[in-house]
Design a protein around this nucleic acid. Structure first.
Length: 376
RNA sequence: GGGGAGAUACCAAAGCGGCCAACUGGGGCAGACUGUAAAUCUGCUGGCGAAUGCCUUCGUAGGUUCGAAUCCUGCUCUCCCCA
C-alpha cells in the first residue's frame, strides 16, 4: 500500500492524498460506506459504484465470521469474490462489537469471549484469530483487535483498557507478520488509537501505534458517548502525534459536520452507519440542511429530493413522493434515502478534497458547516 | 313480516357500576439513530394548562344510583338469520 500526500490546506490540517491498494486507488479524504454483513444495506453495487461513487466499503469480521462463516468466505475466494465488489474493502475487527454487544461478552487478557447474537453459541476472539479471520476475508485494509472504550469511562478504566488494546496490538502485528495473504494480493494492518477523552492517554496511544510503522492508523473510541468537543480535541491531540505520511482513519464518525471538522483536523478516512441507517429511517442529509422526510411539511412539496444532489434519484423523485414511500413503508423509500445520503457524503468529501487541492478549504468548510448542519 | 346481535375517540376493538379521558392495534404527529443485534426504537395522539388539575366525551332522550361507557325505558340507526 502506498500513500501519497498531495496537498495540505492553508490555515488547516486538512490533507488531500492518494491511497493505492491492490483493488484500486482511493482519493482522500474519503468516506467509506459500511457494509457490515458484506452488503451496504439496501444498495446495489452498481449504484454504489456508478451513482454514489464509493471507492471503498467496509465489512465486519464479527458478523461475517458468524454468518455465513469463514469457511464459506474462503470457499468463495474471499469477500471480494463472494459479494462481487472489486474495489477496496476494509474490515473492522470486531472490537466495536465487543463494545456494543457488551452484555454478552467477557474480556480477558487472552481475548474476548462472547455469545453469538444469532444463536447464542459461544466463541472466542483473540488478536491472533482475528488476524487469521481477516486474512480469510481478504480485505485490503484490516483492523487490529481492540477494546472500544466507552466515552464515559473513568481514567482508571480507560488506562487499563488502553493497555490491553496495546498488548493486543503487539500480538496482532506479530500474527499479521507471520502469516501470508490468502488470495495473492497484499493486505495492510491498521492499529487503533484508544484512550477515551484523556489527552495523556491518547498521546501515549498515538506514540505507541506509531512505533509499529504500519501503512495507516485509526482513531477509535470516539462518538461513543463523549461530548462532541471532546471528540474534536482528541482528534487534534492524536493527529499531532501520528506520522504525517500515513493515512489516518477516524472510525465510526459521523454526521456531515463531524466529517468536515475531522477533515479540517487532518483525518483522511471516515466510515459511519449514519447515512444508511438514518437514510433508511427517513433522515436526509442534503446540501441545504437536514430534513426528516416523514414530516407532514413535505406532503405536497413536489420539488426534487435535493436539487443540488449528484445522484440521479435526487432529481428523479420528489420530496412528496419519497414521503409517501416512507409512510407506505415501501422499501423503495429506504433505498432512496440510503442512496441519497451516501451520494451526499461522497459528494461532500469530494468537494472537500477539491477545495484542499485548490487551497480554498477553510472558507468553504466554514460556510458548508452552517449550511448542512441546520434543520429544514 | 318473524327472530337475533349491536352502536365506544380518525379507524378497528377492549371495557359491562367507582381503580375510565377510557386496554390494545392501526392511522396520524413528532423525536432518536455516529467502527450496524436497527427496513429499528421512543414519545404524544378529546380540549385548556408547564403541572397538581379543570372542562367536555362512550348513538340519542330520559330515568335509577352517593356514583353510569357499564343498569332500566323510549327513540334513531346498523348488521345477521328465517320467511
Amino acid at each position: 500500500m502506498k500513500f501519497e500526500l498531495q496537498n495540505t490546506a492553508p490555515l488547516s490540517k486538512a490533507r488531500a492524498g492518494k491511497l493505492e491498494t491492490a483493488h484500486g486507488v482511493i482519493d482522500t479524504p474519503i468516506f467509506m460506506p459500511v457494509g457490515t454483513a458484506g452488503s451496504v444495506k439496501g444498495i446495489h453495487f452498481k449504484d454504489l459504484k456508478e451513482d454514489i461513487k464509493a471507492q471503498i466499503i467496509l465489512g465486519n469480521t464479527y458478523h461475517l465470521y458468524l454468518r455465513p462463516g469463514i469457511d464459506i468466505i474462503e470457499k468463495a475466494g474471499g469477500l471480494h469474490k463472494f459479494n462481487s465488489w472489486d474495489k477496496p474493502i476494509l474490515t473492522d475487527s470486531g472490537g466495536f462489537q465487543v463494545f456494543s454487544l457488551g452484555a454478552i461478552r467477557k474480556l480477558s487478557e487472552e481475548g474476548a469471549r462472547f455469545q453469538s447474537h444469532i444463536d447464542g453459541s459461544r466463541h472466542l476472539f483473540t488478536p491472533e484469530n482475528v488476524m487469521d479471520i481477516q486474512r480469510s476475508i481478504g480485505a485490503d485494509i484490516i483492523m487490529a483487535f481492540d477494546e472500544c472504550t466507552p466515552g464515559d469511562a473513568d481514567y482508571d478504566y480507560a488506562k487499563k483498557s488502553l493497555e490491553l488494546t496495546q498488548r493486543w496490538l503487539a500480538r496482532c502485528v506479530t500474527r499479521f507478520n507471520e502469516t501470508e495473504p490468502k488470495y495473492g494480493y497484499a493486505q495492510s494492518l491498521f492499529p487503533i488509537v484508544q484512550g477515551c477523552i484523556y489527552p495523556d492517554l491518547r498521546i501515549k496511544a498515538a506514540e505507541h501505534v506509531a512505533t509499529f510503522n504500519c501503512d495507516g492508523y485509526a482513531i477509535g473510541g470516539l462518538s461513543v458517548g463523549e461530548k462532541e468537543e471532546d471528540m474534536y480535541s482528541m482528534i487534534e491531540v492524536v493527529n499531532n502525534v501520528l506520522p504525517e505520511d500515513k493515512p489516518r482513519y477516524l472510525m465510526g464518525v459521523g454526521n456531515p459536520v463531524n466529517i468536515l471538522e475531522g477533515i479540517d483536523r487532518g483525518i483522511d478516512l471516515f466510515d459511519c452507519v449514519m447515512p444508511t441507517r438514518n437514510g433508511r429511517n427517513g433522515m436526509l442529509f442534503t446540501s441545504e440542511g437536514i430534513i426528516n422526510i416523514k414530516n407532514s411539511k413535505w406532503k405536497d412539496d413536489f420539488s426534487p429530493i435535493d436539487s443540488n444532489g449528484t445522484s440521479f434519484i435526487d432529481h428523479q423523485y420528489s420530496k412528496a413522493y419519497l414521503r409517501h414511500l416512507f409512510h407506505s413503508k415501501e422499501m423503495l423509500g429506504a433505498q432512496i434515502g440510503s442512496i441519497h445520503n451516501l451520494a451526499f457524503y461522497l459528494w461532500l468529501v469530494g468537494e472537500a478534497r477539491g477545495h484542499i487541492l485548490a487551497g480554498t478549504f477553510s472558507e468553504w468548510k466554514d460556510n458548508m458547516v452552517t449550511k448542512i448542519g441546520r434543520r429544514l
